[in-house]
């Protein structure tokens, strides 16, 4: 008796959850389906059965040179993330294992820089980029994305490092390890999972950053965000090709994102929710 009630409850909950999930996922799903329709099919009214053509993908590449903004997105997101990690790892290490009275204040202050609205510094940043010739340059955008995400990187690493028990580092000191050996043999191997999660989440955030990447680039350094935003004017592409371009822009990061669900919560709440 009790068992059948539980099963019925599970079936009901499953049905409800799947309906909700499919509604939420529907826009993405429909984009995916439309991307493999022909243009006439795409505007012929609602249909979940495409003819299965990959022509749109080819057209997006040949006519609009999709590969270039894609590579820009890869270079900007990976480059800025690695740069941020190089700057942040020593800081987070110091804050986690050698905290002082001011460590907490410094962390909070770093967080506060993240809260500065981008538009507030749009004008000076734009003018500085213009004067230094950094507009539409990969270097300029990489530095920008590095600085924007640095606080999150420091915070995430800090929360991960703090979970490494201090006793283990002390044990290595007792065992005769110097500072360098402590970092190479003990700290780094233990911190790798945390560093990897930070890397992953930060690549996602940098990939999707859509204010500076759109405003500070035009063609040469334009990543996928700017590439897609240029489709907002209706001329040029049609529904199916637009869907193909959209799919290609989000697919890599969607898959990365699925792998980083758990770290996402922690990273985005600055460790406040785990």
């Amino acid at each position: 008796m009790a068992r059948s009630v539980t099963t019925r409850h599970k079936v009901t909950a499953t049905a409800a959850a799947w309906v909700v999930a499919l509604i939420i996922f529907f826009p993405i799903l429909y984009t995916l389906i439309t991307s493999i329709k022909t243009e006439p099919e795409a505007i012929a009214g609602f249909s979940l059965w495409p003819s299965g053509t990959f022509e749109n993908y080819i057209t997006v590449q040949t006519q609009r040179d999709y590969f270039k903004p894609f590579m820009n997105s890869v270079i900007l997101s990976v480059g800025s993330t690695i740069l941020a990690l190089i700057i942040a790892i020593p800081s987070a290490w110091a804050m986690a294992f050698s905290p002082t009275k001011r460590t907490k204040d410094i962390l909070m202050w770093m967080l506060s820089t993240k809260m500065m609205p981008a538009v507030a510094v749009l004008v000076p940043i734009y003018l500085m980029f213009r004067d230094f010739g950094l507009l539409d340059s990969r270097i300029g955008l990489t530095v920008m994305l590095t600085l924007i995400n640095l606080p999150i990187v420091v915070w995430m690493l800090y929360t991960y490092f703090r979970e490494i028990p201090g006793e283990i580092l002390e044990a290595s000191r007792m065992d005769g390890a110097g500072l360098w050996q402590e970092i190479v043999y003990v700290l780094t191997p233990m911190a790798v999972p945390g560093i990897a999660s930070t890397l992953l989440l930060n690549i996602i955030l940098a990939w999707n950053e859509s204010f500076w990447t759109i405003r500070l680039s035009t063609t040469n350094a334009a990543p996928l965000t700017a590439f897609i935003a240029s489709f907002s004017s209706p001329q040029g592409l049609f529904w199916a090709k637009l869907s193909a371009a959209s799919t290609m822009a989000i697919a890599p990061i969607l898959i990365l994102g699925w792998f980083s669900q758990k770290q996402l919560v922690r990273g985005l709440t600055f460790g406040a929710v785990k």
């Binding site: 409850h9 599970k10 909950a13 499953t14 959850a17 799947w18 909700v20 999930a21 499919l22 939420i24 996922f25 826009p27 993405i28 429909y30 984009t31 996602i204 990939w207 999707n208 859509s210 759109i214 996928l224 965000t225 700017a226 897609i228 935003a229 489709f231 907002s232 637009l242 959209s246 822009a249 989000i250 990061i253 969607l254 990365l256 994102g257 699925w258 669900q261 996402l264």
Partner: peptide
């Protein structure tokens, strides 16, 4: 709740978060 296919449901539900804003806007 206990549901069948929880992992996939989770993936479907969180997906929109990974869609870059310009794409989300264009899709809609």
């Amino acid at each position: 709740q206990p549901i069948f296919g929880q992992g996939i449901v989770r993936i479907l539900v969180i997906s929109p978060f990974f869609v870059m804003p310009p794409v989300a806007a264009l899709i809609w």
